[in-house]
Design a protein around this nucleic acid. Sequence first.
DNA 1: TACTCGTTTTGATCCAGATCAATCAATGAA
DNA 2: TTCATTGATTGATCTGGATCAAAACGAGTA
Lengths: 250, 250
Amino acid sequence: MSLNNSISNHLDIAQIKSNCAACSLRELCLPVGLNEQEIEILSDLASRKRKIQRGRYLHQTGSNFQSLFAVRSGSFKTCLLEEDGRQQVTGFYMTGELLGLDGISTETHNCDAIALEDSEVCEIPFTKLQEISRSLPSLMNQFHKIMSREIVRDQGVMLLLGGMKAEERLATFLLNLSRRFSKRGYSASDFNLRMTREEIGSYLGMKLETVSRTFSKLQEEKIIAVDNKHIQINDIDRLTTKIGKSSCAL
Amino acid sequence: MSLNNSISNHLDIAQIKSNCAACSLRELCLPVGLNEQEIEILSDLASRKRKIQRGRYLHQTGSNFQSLFAVRSGSFKTCLLEEDGRQQVTGFYMTGELLGLDGISTETHNCDAIALEDSEVCEIPFTKLQEISRSLPSLMNQFHKIMSREIVRDQGVMLLLGGMKAEERLATFLLNLSRRFSKRGYSASDFNLRMTREEIGSYLGMKLETVSRTFSKLQEEKIIAVDNKHIQINDIDRLTTKIGKSSCAL
DNA sequence: TACTCGTTTTGATCCAGATCAATCAATGAA
DNA sequence: TTCATTGATTGATCTGGATCAAAACGAGTA
């Protein structure tokens, strides 16, 4: 595969690392298999990077959509808020994940994206991405897969919100985080939450008190250890069996 | 716009109507603006149609993904089912809507799609769609918007499942159906449900008994009239105020 | 006509999680 | 250091919707 060739050349690696574009695009495009020339083309695509302070908006509902954003470092939440002030967190995004797909439909952002910590993103002008992908079918395909994956993810959340009880929801959430941290080279069993209990609760459809109580319960059972935002998963198997246990009583 | 020219020619219309491809693609592509030649090209795309009997699968979780499906007539539900037998309805699809987007990510269908009544679909081979869209940027853009719209829709459901109470959920659901029927030229205030109380409940995250009770309650308040699957919306304004009313008590 | 099966409605009871409330810990500003 | 603010934990109580149960209805079909 041409990609491996280009990667095995450490000159190329240096180039990639020094460049924001390739750096975030690696996450987006790596499974695809592009040659050096194609990576070159892509470097143009996402050349602008932006730092976002903790608590600041990356984009706001209603603002004009022009770019997707790849998280380079840090993390974000996306949320909808209704007229009456209710806020629903619809997702958490960490390094390498892509934000802004919801904006394509109306050319207007359909949610708020807020940094959970000081973060950095690469801006990917959407029109440019479309243009380039016309001549790079593998990039186009990869992009379609990313959009589709977002749909599948959302449907997973619907399953969680529609049918699970509190303990199952939190277990699912923790295991999901664990998997994502480990995929990024961090510990799967020892990590710090970037979000508050209230944000977790909003995402999981429960009140912050219930989140806290459920953490405590799992801790009593020695499945996890909780110290404020610091989580240790002591027994990943038992945590896994928590999911879907309730109706397994048959 | 070239599209209007082609449409105003009734010979073209006859051609389009006689042809499954254009027929469903009209729904998909009409806002885009294509000329006759482009419509010609598209006709190739979705030439195969398929009839699905009520209760039969259009596709099943795990089966190989190759095509998207445009609903030509009838309606479908999509659902996930877990090992333990729990079933979560993730969406209802009616004429002109596009099914199968979840399959792109893994090249495997990630949900079941089941006909709610005898229905007909157009099959749209996905690879072909990608190829054609390379030379038809407006088609590519339209496709991206459709995918994005699905993401926005799913996030709306997350909002519903995460934060609303039973009455708000059902009101939201009815108003959504109403809008979709009316967009298709049917009455916005008088229609027949295609799904059971149980399916509605699964989609809205509540039990069928609660769905029934909530229907009854809205009927007592003279906001709607329910006769089995037949729904009349008598007071669309009051139904609208049901959404988000609960926390408007401030 | 009666019988079956799936769906819907309605009633009675129960409980998971919401709500209300108090306390405690961590962080940061004055 | 003290004070203020924000987030987390824990307890006590309440309630919306789940669960259990029964009856009614409608569409087939024998």
